[in-house]
Design a protein around this nucleic acid. Structure first.
Length: 582
RNA sequence: GGCCCCAUCGUCUAGCCUGGUCCAGGACACUACCCUUUCACGGUAGCGACGCGGGUUCGAAUCCCGCUGGGGUCACCA
């Protein structure tokens, strides 16, 4: 059976978008599952190609970020840029030591950066030029704009088409003379049928397909041209991509029909296309980086002191930039400025890119699981599954046609379930690993205490970031702990006996536990014993202690809280509470 | 606006191809109750959808047509 070859072809103009991650996931899963279904000697190849033909917007930094995000998700490519990645998944945590590489070029179809393949594209351009399948065009941007505007004024659709008066010989001469120009496709007037594995057969009439540009004036190929050449040369058999590309497909198919390989003279093959439904925000808008600006802007406008906010964003954004940003919905703040502003406003920025979900403390396997459910399902009630399952069960015929809205609540619920399913020890390992990059405060919790913190936080957290918030009391200096006035009034002052008095009586019982026996179980037992000995309800005893240790009336279990703090800090906080509220 | 795609609970969806087993199943969210030292977790129950109108048929969520609605796309961006 023939091999199955899929590809993910991101444009390195920014971070990996969540929609792109899903496309990559589907491409990866399909190659694996389809090769297995074909059986025999069918191999699967998932390749990664970087479409960096936009010189102005592409960056090496973006490439690195995208590769890193894909690797983090566990979507490993067989061919493509070679990078070292940490091995994950087997035991849930990152392994130290060896960093196996992923990527490479065993079939010698690279390079995988389009900017390094200009010679390849130009060979085909020359081939087409010779046969009048392509031709140079010398229109300026202004001329084209004017023509488009004129067409719009006449309420007509603009379509670039070479007419009979075109002077081919003269144009080729100008091209040879080095005059700047683009190369356009001499598109034959024929209808194009696209057989889409998801959407079915679609016909595009020739009057809607124009003589689009193949090579830009800067010598770089356009997306349409590079994608067709590379998919052929790299042997791609199945193209899975977002539905926004559906209207591009007839161009690609028309090109495939016109082209032959310059090495073997074989005609280009048309791969199987599968256009994926799109993913939107809950309100139906496009998920875009601007959503982060919008959230921050809305919060900033509600804040009272705009001048101080302006100071927060400096030096990443000037005061003028900030002022502009506040009023202009389209303007964007540098990421660093945005992040600091959000932190200052205690605002959670909406996650849009994979990096955002990572920073928030989602598990990569959960993100993949949730993403897989957006536009695909196994056909039954099964919702929780892993990459290994996808690699066998994924198929094109179960991809949906309808666009979906990204439901962050459901993702959070899935992540919360996964966190709760972990042992405290496993949770602690991955929590620590995450915190190394995103939450330095967790370093203050010693290794032997972290599982206790994990156990305390896990049932109350949807993400690692949430989990940190659950033990935030531990990050405050004992003498700096803030007491919630309402809690003090209700828990410490009111009642008979008053909570403060109960706390004073309870303190020695806690203090009686030795430092090396200061475990959650021992602490809970001491509290319970004390309550029983005084014939007091647990609430009467526990709540005053809770306020003393955390400053609030809401927290994880007291045994855990006290154990996280340790004997010394626990007693110090009780002592301070009694002193401050006497 | 032209072209193209889509249409089941608030959301993600199963069912549709191969009409009857669907007064439509699951998940998230929401509500109530139970558990409980707070908050959670957990448990139980509940609320909640076939966009509208025509056909075809003994029978339609399922097939056909129209309408409406939503989305995509119309670059020397990808």
């Amino acid at each position: 059976m023939p091999d199955v070859i899929t590809r993910f072809a991101p444009s390195p103009t920014g971070h990996l978008h969540i929609g792109g991650a899903r496309t990559a996931l589907f491409c990866w899963a399909f190659a694996r599952a389809e090769a297995t279904r074909r059986g025999g000697d069918a191999r699967s190849t998932f390749l990664l190609r970087v479409e960096d033909t936009d010189q102005a917007r592409s960056s090496e930094q973006a490439v690195a970020g995208i590769l890193e995000d894909l690797a983090w998700l566990g979507i490993h490519w067989d061919e493509g840029p070679r990078v070292g990645v940490a091995e994950r998944w087997s035991d849930g945590a990152t392994k130290g030591g060896d960093r196996p590489a992923i990527g490479g070029d065993p079939r010698r179809v690279g390079p995988f950066f389009q900017a390094q393949r200009l010679g390849i594209y130009n060979q085909s351009i020359d081939w087409m030029l010779e046969r009048d399948l392509a031709y140079p065009a010398f229109d300026t941007a202004e001329e084209l704009d004017a023509q488009r505007k004129a067409a719009a004024d006449r309420k007509q659709t603009y379509r670039y088409k070479r007419d009979a008066s075109y002077g081919r010989a003269a144009s080729l001469a100008r091209l040879r003379a080095g005059e700047p120009c683009v190369i356009r496709f001499n598109n034959p007037d024929a209808p194009v049928h696209v057989a889409d594995a998801v959407l079915g057969d679609i016909t595009f009439e020739p009057e809607h397909i124009d003589d689009f540009v193949l090579r830009k004036a800067d010598g770089f190929p356009t997306y349409h041209f590079a994608v067709v050449i590379d998919d052929e040369l790299m042997g791609v058999t199945h193209i899975l991509r977002g539905q926004e590309h559906l209207n591009n497909t007839p161009r690609h198919v028309a090109l495939q029909r016109a082209l032959r390989r310059t090495d073997t003279d074989q005609p280009f093959r048309t791969p199987v296309y599968a256009h994926l439904p799109l993913i939107f925000n809950p309100d139906g808008s496009k998920m875009s980086k601007r959503d982060k600006d919008k959230a921050a802007r809305d919060a900033a406008k509600k804040a009272s002191d705009l001048a101080s906010l302006s100071a927060i964003v400096a030096p990443d954004a000037s005061a003028e930039q900030f002022a502009t940003w506040l009023d202009d919905k389209r303007s964007q703040l540098p990421t660093n400025a945005l992040v600091r502003l959000a932190a200052h406003l205690s605002l959670d920025l909406p996650e849009i890119e994979v990096e955002d979900f990572r920073a928030s403390g989602y598990l990569p396997e959960v993100l993949c699981n949730y993403l897989a459910l957006l536009g695909w399902n196994p056909g039954n009630d099964l919702e929780k599954f892993d990459l290994a399952f996808l690699a066998t069960a994924f198929d094109l015929d179960r991809i949906g046609k309808t666009n979906s809205k990204f439901d962050r609540d459901k993702l959070r619920a899935f992540n919360a379930d996964a966190l709760r399913a972990m042992t405290p020890e496993a949770f602690a390992v991955r929590w620590r690993e995450w915190a190394g990059q995103y939450e330095p405060r967790l370093a203050s919790i010693p290794d032997n205490t972290l599982p206790i913190a994990a156990r305390a936080a896990a049932p109350r957290a949807s993400t690692f970031r949430d989990a940190v918030a659950q033990i935030a009391f531990a990050f405050t200096e004992d003498e700096a702990l803030a007491f919630d006035p309402a809690a003090v009034q209700k828990v410490l002052r009111k009642g008979e006996p008053a909570g403060l008095d109960t706390l004073r009586d309870l303190a020695p019982a806690i203090g009686a536990i030795a430092a090396d026996a200061f475990t959650p179980e021992a602490i809970d037992a001491a509290i319970k014993l004390f309550a029983e000995s005084r014939s007091l309800g647990m609430g009467k005893v526990a709540q005053p202690l809770r306020v003393a240790l955390t400053g609030t009336s809401v927290s994880p279990g007291l045994g855990d809280v006290a154990a996280i703090l340790g004997r010394g800090r626990t007693l110090a906080r009780i002592e301070r509470c009694l002193r401050e509220h006497a």
